[in-house]
Design a protein around this nucleic acid. Structure first.
Length: 961
RNA sequence: GCGGACGUGGCGGAACGGUAGACGCAAGGGACUUAAAAUCCCUUGGGGGAAACCCCGUGCGGGUUCGAGUCCCGCCGUCCGCACCA
């Protein structure tokens, strides 16, 4: 077939703007990127992190989606059924801010942005299946999210409880820790208050161990991300020690409290105990001690700001409470409240061993409590070893530790754990039978009666009261109750109550449950009704979705749902009495925690997923996005997939088999003498030995500043629309892939884009020239190839092999280099053939014409994933009547990669001196003879025999003189 | 403080423990042009030499190895993550 537009070779320009629109239309009309939910024998799911519809795409999007598109196009060519969908992470604060600032409804603002960005993405020529488009703000999507919330609730994976939050009194909302800067709200600048709020939690900690263990199975994830998640989950093994208290010293006769330690070996170095300011025992003591109460108040006020924590002095207040050493009843330790103890970690209480912990040492040095070293470093004399300002946390042998003396740290830890496990406290523990669940003020237990005669529940009371049971939650979500033996009078309870050991080996995690309540309008409503009689009642599934009301106002701060006149007033689904809706909405991270599963069948209305589809498409084979999501989004998604598995919506644990985190797009900054930032589009740069820049409009010189992440504030952004209009999408895509390795930052430069543009033009000309030669190629593959034809075929298949390999490894910049190399080689061949232009054309041998035809076909296919429009245009120009986007990836002929003769580098003493050319089949002796005959080798050996000749087959020869 | 990554020409960067600097950008020279643009060709890590060729070179100092940019140990620097985690 003749080309669609016959190119006037070789000088006419490739018109990107015209050709790109034309090919995009062809792809769309033929629907070639729509993936049917049918035969999935060989599936490949490639996904880029979906964008927030901010209004316009930026260069970071261009980079991200280009990478994904290359993978999608290559996998498609390799015969996979590829799923490559796109959607919108459409809920979130910016929509509400726009509503407040510009009086636009968040929904209208969001959908206008989606429309604008969609057309921008389409202009990039991405091979996306738009029929699966999702917007998370669409009730058709969040309906299922609400249903899953209820499923999770039933499965015990959702909990409602009080927790400490950062409250912004001006914006009237909870702030995430990241949104608190120096103790002030990031938007309002108001001093953030710590307060307790009842919030909904996803029990991600239920999966702490599993989320940690499974990291090892994620082989195609960056090591860095796995490590970040590992640290975030923060597992530590240690010993829970129950310290006896002197009841005469405690406010309510409390006689015990718990401490978590990873260093039980240092127990004989203890000098004090310390409680977090929020510790219940501290609170109890404060009730009777106004000064302590005041101290605790001060600690709370400081708290939040990280900068303060860094410099904060270790402060403490002696509560007067005295604890008894577990190995010596006569040894009492003062119990302080200290500002550096966190209630959120461990038990919120520690024992302080100053000699071997820097914080504890700072503390005792301030309060004059002294220290006793109990670990002696190797080579130190225990008698003279003292600690003054620097704690010792290294290895060594135990000293000053009675029965532990002489042991290693590991041995001592084991010995302490063993002894304390054997010793029992006076309390008993009652594990609640399965089926128990926790309501806000009680634990409901089906089979056990408590001492007060109540048939089926325990009151959940704070600890430290002997009159009541203490209720505890285990990390796995089960409950247990602690109390004195004589309290468990019920026979059944007595049977299963177990004495509690003083020491208990325990694993602690840093990971906290995921609080999802947000006091915002533009988010997924939490499907709960609060009834004064029935409590928190789930909205019946048949009533879903709970949709957002559209008639809301943003003229005041606070949550519009809360002040809406009618929306929240409903009847209780259980008792039909008057009740109110939950007005909090879900964290937007919930929306993005399962969209990849929804993409596998976004049409199903009866369930979040179609099990057959989600099971055959998942996991995502290649997920691509920014490193900034290394922890939160990826960890939440891993949790959510587990929770969906537990509730029957998916059949796997890990959603992303392969993860790639791409680098940012950076650009030079420009600043005028007045200190104003200037945008790249406003600046003209003169290249040369001393590069200079000036404003285009006025000619005023501007200073060229450091290369930084593209940001609105520094105005160093480049608009993808401008680039696509001026150079075309292919050029933007090519440059994004060419300059830097994909995981590193890429520096966007005008020169670089121009280079990419020149190359696109060069490819167009080259393909045209090659096509002229290839047009009269024989249809049948010649039986024999002359040496120039063979050389061309070898170059073709070498390029093919390398590009194929490097694309699989996502080394796009190296692929680009190989394509340049191949284009250069092809150019050289054509140059040799027709030094005088068209004249010599007739003399070209048929086998060479055939090889040229092969070369140009492969070339177009090789650059197709990166520059798909140009590739289609070239494909048509070389006379193909198919679409290159639908053409199978060429096969490497491995025989062509093997050379008959090898040129091996020859080293003498590890330094390269010469090359030697030998037959591929040459044996060691033959190679050695050839090498020793080389002038360069003889010269260095100077007549002497070599000590050794090392021959690495197919690689190198090294002569040791 | 803890953890991690990185450090290669003027620049972005290549390099299964095996020829360091592929490929691109920038620069210099040349060809074609009345000229410019575009295009094409050549040169381009540093030093020495007329040349053949030689010496030095992957942040610094050691080590392992026939051979180290690559592996090990110790520094220095840059970036990132976590951070009073008991």
């Amino acid at each position: 077939m003749q080309p669609v537009t016959k190119p006037k070779m070789p000088t006419d320009r490739y018109n990107a703007a015209e050709a790109e629109a034309r090919w995009q239309k062809v792809w769309e009309e033929r629907g070639i990127f729509r993936t049917p939910n049918a035969e999935l024998a060989k599936k490949y799911y490639v996904l880029e992190m979906f964008p927030y519809p901010s209004g316009r795409i930026h260069m970071g999007h261009v980079r991200n989606y280009t990478m994904g598109d290359v993978v999608a196009r290559v996998k498609r060519a390799m015969g996979f059924t590829v799923l490559h969908p796109m959607g919108w992470d459409a809920f979130g604060m910016p929509a509400e801010n726009a509503a407040m600032e510009r009086k636009v409804h968040p929904k209208i603002w969001t959908y206008e942005n989606i429309a604008a960005m969609k057309s921008q993405l389409k202009s990039m020529g991405l091979s996306l299946d738009w029929s699966r488009e999702i917007a998370t703000c669409d009730p058709a999507y969040y309906k299922h999210q609400q249903a899953m919330f209820l499923d999770f609730l039933r499965a015990g994976l959702v909990e409602r409880r009080k927790s400490k939050v950062n409250w912004d009194p001006v914006d009237q909302t909870v702030l995430a820790n990241e949104q608190v800067i120096d103790g002030r709200g990031w938007r309002s600048g108001a001093l953030v208050e710590q307060c307790e709020l009842t919030q909904w939690f996803f029990k991600i900690t239920r999966f702490s161990q599993d989320l940690l263990d499974a990291l090892d199975t994620l082989e195609r994830w960056p090591e860095k991300v796995r490590l970040m998640q590992k640290n975030w989950i923060g597992r530590s093994e240690g010993l829970l020690v129950r310290f006896a208290l002197d009841p005469r010293s405690t406010p309510n006769g409390e006689d015990e409290f718990e401490v978590f330690t990873t260093r039980p070996d240092t127990l004989f170095g203890a000098k004090f105990m310390a409680l977090a300011p929020d510790h219940p025992l501290a609170a109890a003591a404060a009730e009777k001690n106004p000064k302590l109460s005041q101290f605790i108040e001060e600690c709370r006020r400081r708290g939040t700001a990280e900068a303060e924590i860094e410099t904060a002095e270790k402060l403490g207040f002696d509560t007067g409470i005295r604890a008894l050493h577990p190995f010596d009843k006569s040894w009492t330790l003062p119990v302080y409240v200290a500002n550096f103890i966190l209630m959120e970690y461990g038990t919120g209480a520690i024992f302080g061993c100053p000699a071997h912990d820097q914080r504890d040492l700072d503390f005792v040095n301030k309060y004059g409590l002294g220290n006793t070293p109990v670990v002696c470093p190797p080579g130190q004399d225990p008698k003279t070893f003292v600690i003054t300002d620097t704690a010792y946390d290294g290895d060594g042998r135990m000293i000053n530790s009675r029965f532990l003396d002489g042991m290693t740290i590991a041995e001592a830890k084991e010995e302490v754990a063993r002894r304390l496990e054997e010793r029992k406290t006076s309390n008993y523990r009652l594990d609640l039978p399965s089926g128990a669940y926790r309501a806000p003020t009680m634990v409901v237990v089906p089979a056990v009666r408590d001492v007060n005669g109540s048939p089926s529940y325990f009151h959940a009371r704070r600890k430290f009261s002997n009159k009541y049971y203490q209720l505890r939650t285990l990390p796995d979500g089960r409950y247990y109750v602690i109390g004195r033996r004589n309290l468990f009078q019920n026979r059944k309870a007595l049977d299963i109550a177990k004495p509690i050991a003083v020491g208990e080996r325990q694993t602690n995690f840093r990971l906290r449950d995921w609080g999802i309540s947000r006091q915002r309008y533009w988010g997924c409503p939490i499907p709960i009704v609060h009834c004064p009689a029935c409590g928190a009642v789930p909205v019946p599934k048949g009533d879903l979705p709970v949709t957002l009301p559209e008639d809301v106002t943003f003229d005041r701060s606070g949550n519009p749902l809360d002040r809406h006149p009618i929306w929240k007033h409903v009847e209780c689904p259980q008792c039909r009495g008057p009740a109110t809706r939950e007005t909090d909405t879900m964290d937007t991270f919930v929306d993005s925690s399962w969209y990849f599963e929804r993409f596998t069948d976004p049409w199903i209305t009866t369930a979040p997923t179609d099990r057959a589809m989600v099971d055959s498409w998942m996991p995502v084979d290649q997920y691509i996005g920014g490193i900034e999501h290394a922890i939160l989004h990826l960890l939440y998604s891993r949790f959510f997939t587990r929770a969906m598995k537990a509730t029957g919506h998916v059949g796997l644990d890990e959603p992303f088999a392969g993860l790639f985190t791409q680098g940012m797009v950076v650009h030079e900054t420009y600043r005028t003498a007045a200190g104003e930032w200037a945008a790249p589009a406003e600046v003209k740069v003169e290249e040369g030995d001393n590069r200079r820049a000036s404003l285009i409009a006025t000619g005023e010189p501007v200073e060229i500043g450091p290369i930084e992440k593209m940001s609105k504030s520094k105005r160093n952004t480049v608009d993808p629309d401008d680039i696509i209009r001026e150079y075309g999408a292919d050029v933007a895509r090519w440059f994004m892939l060419s300059d830097s390795p994909p995981e590193r930052d890429v520096n966007w430069t005008e020169k670089g884009v121009q280079g990419a543009w020149r190359f696109a033009q060069r490819l167009w000309r080259l393909v045209g020239e090659a096509a002229t030669i290839a047009r009269s190629a024989p249809a049948e593959r010649p039986a024999h190839f002359s040496s120039p034809a063979l050389a061309l075929r070898k170059a073709t298949h070498r390029a093919l092999a390398k590009v194929t390999e490097d694309i699989e490894k996502l080394h796009f910049n190296v692929c680009v280099a190989h394509i340049y190399e191949f284009a250069n080689a092809l150019n050289a061949v054509i140059g040799d053939l027709a030094p005088e232009g068209e004249g010599a054309e007739a003399d070209i041998a048929p086998d060479l014409r055939w090889a040229m035809s092969e070369a140009v076909n492969v070339l177009v296919q090789l650059f197709h994933p990166m520059m798909p429009h140009l590739a289609e245009e070239c494909w048509a120009a070389i006379g193909r009547d198919s679409l290159v986007a639908q053409t199978a990836w060429p096969q490497v002929e491995h025989a062509l990669l093997i050379e008959d003769t090898l040129t091996l580098p020859v080293q003498v003493n590890g330094r390269k001196r010469a090359d030697v050319t030998v037959a591929r089949t040459a044996g060691a002796a033959e190679i050695e003879t050839a090498v020793l005959a080389l002038d360069a080798v003889k010269r260095v050996l100077d007549g002497k025999a070599p000590k050794k000749v090392i021959i690495v087959p197919q690689r190198i020869v090294n002569v040791v003189a």
